[in-house]
C-alpha cells in the first residue's frame, strides 16, 4: 500500500467513523444498556411490537406491489411508444427528489379529509401503504429498465416463430432474464419502506396500535426521553435492513452469474 493511499484511507475511515460508524454502533450499544431483558421488553412492548409488525407488513406489501407495478412501468417505458412517454420517463424519479414531508402533504391533499375525489385515507393503514408506495415508486422501475433495454429481442422473435404465445414467451424468455433485476429493485424498495418516516407523519396521524410505523414510534420514544427503548427498536430496523441488503447483494451476484 503506497503512502498516499494509506493517508487517504486514514482520513476517509476517520471521517466515516465520526459521522456514521461510531454513532450507529452507539445505537446498538445503547440498546443493550439495560441488559437483553430490557431490550426484549422494549421491542415486545405492545405499541412497539404493533409498530414493528405494521412497518414490516406494510413494507412487504408495498415491495410486492412495486415488483408488479414497477415491472409494468419499466416495460411500458422501454417497449411502448406514445405521446407523453418522455414525461412519464422523467417524472418517475420525482419521489427521489421530493422531500418526504412534502410527499406526505401532497398525498393528504388528494386523499385526506378534504379530498376532491371524496376518498379519505387519512389516519388509516391504507394511507400508510399509499405513502410508502409513493416514496418507493422508482426503485423497481430503475433497476428493471436497463436490463430490459439490453434484452435481445431476437430471442423473443425466435420463441414466437417456434410457436410460443405471448404469455409463454414472457414466462420462458423475458421473465427469467428480468427476475434478478426485479428482485433487486424489490429488496431496495423494502429497505427504503421500513426506514420511512417523513411521508407517513402527516397522513398516518401516528395512532399507536393502528397507523404508527416503527420510525415514528422511535421518534416519540426519543421525545419521551426513552433513548434505550428507541435504540432497541432502531437496532431491530438496522438488522432487518442489513438482512435485506445481504439478500440484495446475493441477488445481484446471482444476476451477474446468469448474465
Amino acid at each position: 500500500m503506497a503512502g498516499g493511499t494509506a493517508a487517504g484511507l486514514g482520513v476517509v475511515v476517520m471521517y466515516l467513523s465520526l459521522i456514521v460508524l461510531i454513532p450507529l454502533a452507539a445505537v446498538v450499544w445503547r440498546s443493550m444498556d439495560d441488559g437483553p431483558g430490557y431490550f426484549w421488553r422494549s421491542i415486545t412492548a405492545p405499541d412497539a411490537w404493533a409498530a414493528l409488525s405494521l412497518t414490516i407488513g406494510a413494507s412487504a406489501l408495498v415491495a410486492l406491489l412495486n415488483l408488479v407495478m414497477g415491472t409494468i412501468i419499466a416495460w411500458v417505458l422501454v417497449r411502448d411508444r406514445f405521446p407523453g412517454r418522455a414525461v412519464l420517463e422523467t417524472i418517475i424519479d420525482l419521489p427521489f427528489a421530493l422531500p418526504t414531508i412534502v410527499a406526505g402533504l401532497v398525498l393528504l391533499a388528494l386523499y385526506g379529509p378534504q379530498s376532491p375525489l371524496g376518498v379519505n385515507l387519512a389516519y388509516s393503514r391504507v394511507g400508510v401503504v399509499l405513502a410508502l408506495m409513493f416514496v418507493t415508486l422508482p426503485f423497481v422501475v430503475r433497476t428493471v429498465q436497463p436490463v430490459l433495454l439490453e434484452l435481445d429481442k431476437e430471442m423473443e422473435q425466435a420463441a414466437a416463430s417456434l410457436g410460443a404465445g405471448p404469455f409463454q414467451t414472457f414466462r420462458r424468455i423475458i421473465l427469467p432474464n428480468l427476475l434478478p433485476a426485479m428482485l433487486s429493485g424489490t429488496a431496495l424498495a423494502f429497505t427504503r419502506a421500513i426506514a420511512e418516516f417523513g411521508s407517513t407523519v402527516l397522513i398516518s396521524g401516528n395512532l399507536p396500535f393502528k397507523t404508527q410505523v416503527a420510525a415514528v414510534n422511535i421518534f416519540s420514544q426519543i421525545e419521551g426521553d426513552n433513548t434505550t427503548g428507541a435504540a432497541a427498536i432502531s437496532t431491530v430496523l438496522l438488522v432487518v435492513a442489513l438482512v435485506a441488503l445481504v439478500t440484495l447483494d446475493l441477488l445481484q451476484r446471482w444476476g451477474k452469474r446468469r448474465g
Binding site: 445505537v27 421518534f219 442489513l242
Partner: peptide, 18 residues
C-alpha cells in the same frame, strides 16, 4: 450504509454520541 438507515435512527445515533 447511510442509504439503508432510517432518518430517525440517524438522529438518535447522533444524539447518543454528540
Amino acid at each position: 450504509l447511510p442509504m439503508a438507515v432510517s432518518p430517525v435512527v440517524v438522529g438518535l445515533a447522533l444524539i447518543l454520541v454528540y
